Amino acid sequence: MKRTAVLVSAAALTTLGSTLDLAHAQPALAHDDAHVTAFSDQEQDAALKFWTTARLRAAEEVTPEPAPTRAGPIPSPTADDGPALTVPPLPAPASTDAEAGRENQVPALASSPKPWRGGGLIHRTSGKVFFQNATGATFSCSATVANSSNKSVVLTAAHCVVDPATGDGYRKWVFIPGYSHGGRPFGTFTAKKLFHLKRYVTSNNGDNWDFAFASMRKHNGRTLADTVGAQGIRFNTPMARHVHSFGYGGTPAEGSGERLNHCQGREHADTTRPGSTMRGIDCVQTGGSSGGGFLAGFDADKGSGYLIGDISVGNGVSEFHPRLGDAARTLYRKASRS
């Protein structure tokens, strides 16, 4: 994840369809703020060949530069409000050997991340992202499968899809659900398109918009959600709930990026930075956890809940996520249709 001073980096288809129809019925942004990075089939094939096991292990936890400060209004907490929208989780297919040996135990509340040993939907729908920047360096982040009409969307951080200093989109972008110690239990999915807001790069409070969605190509003829299931997602929701976060932090205490870690706590506002509309909990995951999911309404027995943000920045005591408001809902809708 990034730090503030030193950045380190279902429901039945009928129910889902009617829920997404509600999302489509809402008015779009006054102007199209979405930036889309698209990859051809040939580029995706090349990405699959590129990401050997050796390259996966050699990739560094993402360490982006801070987004440049530019003139412009600082958003207010209510500037991105709209009607609440909830998309339900999609249960995973029948159990596989990849789930064997999991213990359904939730770590006690703590100020530092703990290994996730509970199994369930979250260990399938969480995963690692790998990509290459313009200079050829390789990096990793975290991401989570979000239920969508195309069953092919993941939520991650904007700084995991675009260089915030230059606006250049990252390449050779792949997602490995259920990643653990180099294993690919459900295969490697390549990104067809990456979606982030232009204001993430151009605004003077870019962290407020540090979310992104990726639309993934099918693997072995199956969509991502049909392969591993999907978490629910919520937009325009209130604060002050008990939430959980999941990511692949890169420190030795977090398994050096090779295992899924977990934090939980009561959500609070980010009062440490002027103009911030972010929310967080008193727990800090480190580089590589960027983009990992924040979930509300989390059922530890099932490992399922509702995405309400992604791990973005921290201040050494708390980790924060951008709020998923109307701008995020519009971006999600675009990804869901791609």
Score class of each variant (00 low, 15 high):
residue 1 M to I: 14
residue 12 A to C: 06
residue 12 A to T: 14
residue 18 S to Q: 13
residue 20 L to V: 15
residue 22 L to D: 06
residue 23 A to H: 01
residue 28 A to H: 09
residue 32 D to N: 15
residue 33 D to M: 07
residue 34 A to H: 13
residue 38 A to I: 05
residue 40 S to H: 10
residue 47 A to Q: 07
residue 50 F to G: 04
residue 57 R to C: 03
residue 59 A to W: 10
residue 59 A to R: 09
residue 61 E to P: 15
residue 71 A to I: 10
residue 73 P to T: 12
residue 74 I to R: 15
residue 76 S to N: 06
residue 80 D to L: 09
residue 81 D to N: 14
residue 93 P to W: 02
residue 96 T to D: 04
residue 96 T to V: 07
residue 102 R to E: 10
residue 102 R to K: 09
residue 104 N to Q: 06
residue 107 P to M: 07
residue 109 L to E: 07
residue 111 S to F: 06
residue 124 R to Y: 00
residue 128 K to S: 09
residue 130 F to W: 12
residue 133 N to R: 02
residue 133 N to W: 00
residue 134 A to Q: 13
residue 138 T to S: 09
residue 139 F to Y: 15
residue 146 A to K: 01
residue 148 S to Q: 04
residue 153 V to H: 00
residue 153 V to C: 01
residue 164 P to V: 13
residue 167 G to C: 07
residue 171 R to N: 12
residue 176 I to W: 01
residue 177 P to C: 04
residue 177 P to H: 03
residue 179 Y to C: 05
residue 183 G to T: 15
residue 184 R to N: 13
residue 185 P to L: 12
residue 194 L to C: 07
residue 200 Y to I: 08
residue 203 S to R: 04
residue 205 N to I: 12
residue 207 D to F: 12
residue 218 K to T: 15
residue 218 K to Y: 01
residue 220 N to K: 13
residue 222 R to C: 03
residue 225 A to K: 02
residue 230 A to T: 05
residue 234 R to Q: 14
residue 236 N to Q: 05
residue 238 P to N: 08
residue 243 V to A: 09
residue 243 V to Q: 05
residue 246 F to G: 00
residue 248 Y to L: 06
residue 249 G to W: 07
residue 250 G to V: 04
residue 250 G to F: 03
residue 252 P to A: 10
residue 257 G to F: 04
residue 260 L to R: 00
residue 262 H to Q: 15
residue 262 H to S: 11
residue 264 Q to E: 15
residue 265 G to K: 03
residue 270 D to H: 08
residue 283 C to K: 06
residue 284 V to S: 04
residue 297 G to K: 00
residue 299 D to R: 06
residue 300 A to V: 01
residue 301 D to T: 09
residue 302 K to W: 03
residue 303 G to L: 00
residue 307 L to S: 01
residue 307 L to R: 00
residue 309 G to T: 08
residue 312 S to D: 08
residue 316 G to C: 09
residue 318 S to F: 03
